[in-house]
């Protein structure tokens, strides 16, 4: 069995990418299983999708703990301790990522010694299909190339899955062209085929004791209570308010789903970038166009990588 784990954010199309790989594997004669997991569904929230490809019935379910290939749609996820996209990836496994950094930088930053493909699939998608959503077909195509799935199966799978989410024939054709260039030059990677999951050091079964009701009931008394899941690092684009254009209408303040916009004493809106998840609703809603969107480029410090 080959196990592929996708990491992205809600809205980046990694569920569709995983489905393209699953369908391509089925078309190539394998048994496949694909499944996405979201938290409470929110655009921008980290999500995971798992694809298992095998020649015999698959006796596993849920998120893949030890993948053979990891696909990362968004390099901001690498440094998120709540996500840990590289967790469980063996040195012999493959890593595919969309990043504006170079492949050398990606190798240095991740420390992954095995097969690595790191390209700016987002820019490629923006150029070729005019939308960030193209990353989905681009990464799926590149992943299929690394897995050695056949070209015709990939083309058919992209057609099937993009049609299923309602894309027009023109848009599907553009995505197929994008998929073609995304896989250019990518070689099949020899991945270890393991029928039983690699045995892992597990954690022993323990007793659960009665706790007093202050502890043992599901209530929350702290605020803020998101240190494990800082929404500020979800952003791919950063909203930036231009005070010169702002008319203080407060539309952004009212519409922000995260409460990331606060008003100061003069009633000017300000963004809290620790909390702003980058959904860009404020950019859409601002009637005067006072909020710009700026591509996030985070600095990489090697020590930050969590795995």
């Amino acid at each position: 069995m080959i196990r592929v784990r996708f990491h992205g954010r809600g809205g980046q199309g990694m569920k569709t990418a995983s489905r393209i790989v699953g369908t391509a594997a089925l078309l190539d004669g394998f048994i496949a299983q694909d499944s996405p997991v979201y938290g409470a569904e929110r655009r921008g929230a980290p999500m995971v999708a798992s694809v298992r490809i095998a020649e015999a019935p698959i006796f596993e379910r849920g998120v893949i703990p030890a993948p053979d290939l990891v696909v990362v749609a968004d390099d901001t996820l690498l440094d998120d301790p709540a996500v840990q996209p590289l967790a469980g990836l063996p040195p012999t496994g493959g890593l595919l990522m969309a990043t504006a950094h170079s492949e050398e930088e990606a190798r240095r930053h991740t420390g992954h010694p095995g097969a690595l493909v790191a390209r700016d699939f987002l820019t490629l998608a923006l150029e070729q299909v005019g939308s960030a959503a193209g990353v989905s077909a681009a990464l799926a195509s590149a992943a299929c190339a690394m897995l050695g799935l056949s070209g015709p199966a990939v083309v058919a799978a992209i057609g099937t899955e993009l049609e299923a989410i309602g894309l027009s024939p023109d848009s599907i054709r553009a995505n197929l062209r994008l998929a073609e260039s995304a896989r250019a030059g990518i070689q099949r990677v020899e991945l270890p085929v393991r029928s039983l999951a690699a045995p892992r050091a597990g954690s022993p079964v323990v007793d659960v004791a009665y706790a007093p009701p202050e502890v043992g009931t599901p209530s929350v008394t702290a605020r803020p209570n998101t240190p494990l899941r800082r929404t500020g690092n979800w952003r791919v684009f950063r909203p930036v308010i231009d005070p010169a254009k702002c008319t203080q209408c407060w539309v952004c303040f009212v519409r922000c789903p995260e409460g990331a916009i606060e008003l100061d004493a003069e009633e000017n809106p300000h963004l809290d970038y620790e909390v702003c998840k980058g959904c860009l609703i404020c950019v859409e809603e601002c009637p005067t166009g006072a909020i710009a969107k700026v591509r996030e480029m985070r600095e990489w410090a090697p020590s930050e990588v969590t795995r």
């Binding site: 323990v206 659960v208 502890v215 929350v220 702290a222 605020r223 209570n225 240190p227």
Partner: peptide, 20 residues
């Protein structure tokens, strides 16, 4: 229920501000 899950539970309880 595993020891690792029990540890994770303790972390979440303290983030939630639970006394004790």
């Amino acid at each position: 229920f595993t020891a690792a899950e029990a540890r994770q539970m303790q972390t979440l309880l303290s983030i939630a501000g639970k006394e004790g």
